[in-house]
Simulated assay, not measured.
Amino acid sequence: MTAWPDRRILDLFGIELPIIQAPMAGSSTPEMAIAVSEAGGLGSLPTALYSLDQAREAVGRIRQATARPINLNFFSHQMPVLDPARIDAWRARLKPYYLENGIDPEAPVPVTGRAPFDTDLCGLVEHYRPEVVSFHFGLPEGALLERVKATGAKVISSATTVAEARWLAARGVDAVIAMGFEAGGHRGNFLSDDMSRQVGLFALLPQVVDAVKVPVIAAGGIADARGIVAALALGASAVQIGTAYLYSPEVKTAAVHLEALKNASDDNTVITNLFTGRPARGIVNRLMREVGPLSPDAPPFPFAGGALVPLRAKAEAAGSGDFTNLWSGQAAKLARPMPAGELTRKLAAEALAKLGKA
């Protein structure tokens, strides 16, 4: 397939299809990245929930299984100072749920976190030399970014506003991901925390295309060929697709999450900060209805999740997603269950057919 209207991302990344599998921490697997890359798209591996050794093992498996380009994804947030008072207040807010589920509310809070990009992870990039390195929540500090670029990797990052896109372009990214408000999982915002000003993809995308000279990747609410064609028409050079891949057998998703996705609708996802302390889109559950979805009680990212660990484990064991982060975009209903590689090829073929290029 060579008849795509805009080949900039294809040529930049060395891929055949303008489809990037979104790096979804906690759900994406090395097997998914391998399948998408082998199909001609860009497979992505999120590292945020891995230890350094786990990341090495996962990237090594991918490199052994495919010679195609891959994307390694990292978070680039600044770790806040842990405030014990905030943690205690959050535990107090959750205490009724602990008692209801027979959990000791005074038990130590499990430590959870999502590590930001640092010198150790930069060493991982320098060793495995992925073709693409993507960041969420802006970019790492300049010296680390220059080390990444020195490996030859193409650098991309998410922008949720035109201002963020300009900020990224000014710092030398090779492409910008325009992340619409429809997208599932963590928002990529980094210049503002005001969720009331976040922009939908169809308004955001053409304005980002007009604002920066680098290629733009569209993300948010794209789950079928119609979305791909629409994004290309608005100036995108490629699309990033997340939720549609959550139905693939290569995914690692809790049973309660998959069940929630099967019953998802256009209007039952909201932005919440309860599960990590940072705004993210997920399917509404009991905790979001009763506490949030956006609550000032939640500790800052990434410390909110620890107190929810025992509640989530107890609920999931009983088949409930009441305390699970059920990340999903707004177009989950359009997704079709099939292997990740097959989905990638099918989406591309259907999009080309709609473009009259097949």
Rank of each mutant, 00 (worst) to 15 (best):
P5K: 01
R8Q: 07
E16M: 02
P23L: 06
M32R: 02
E38C: 00
E38S: 10
A39F: 13
G40H: 09
G40S: 11
S44E: 01
T47W: 01
T47H: 04
Y50P: 00
Y50Q: 13
L52M: 04
D53I: 13
A55R: 07
E57V: 07
A58L: 13
L72G: 00
M79V: 14
P80R: 06
I87D: 03
A92K: 15
R93Q: 14
I103W: 09
D104K: 09
P105H: 09
P105W: 12
E106I: 00
G113E: 10
C122L: 06
L124K: 12
R129V: 14
V132D: 01
L139T: 04
P140T: 04
P140L: 10
G142S: 15
A143I: 05
L144T: 09
V148T: 07
V148P: 02
A159L: 11
V162N: 01
A163T: 06
V173A: 10
I177Q: 01
A178L: 10
M179N: 01
L191Y: 08
S192I: 03
D194G: 07
F202V: 14
L204V: 11
A211C: 07
I217D: 00
A223R: 07
G227N: 12
A230Q: 10
L234E: 05
L234I: 11
I241M: 14
I241Q: 05
G242T: 01
P249L: 10
A260R: 06
A264H: 02
A264D: 06
S265H: 09
N268G: 12
V270W: 08
I271W: 05
P279C: 08
R289N: 13
G292M: 06
P300Q: 15
F301R: 09
F301P: 07
G306D: 04
A307V: 08
L308M: 04
T324L: 01
T324M: 03
L334V: 02
E342S: 09
L343V: 04
A348N: 09
E350V: 10
E350K: 00
L352V: 10
A358E: 14
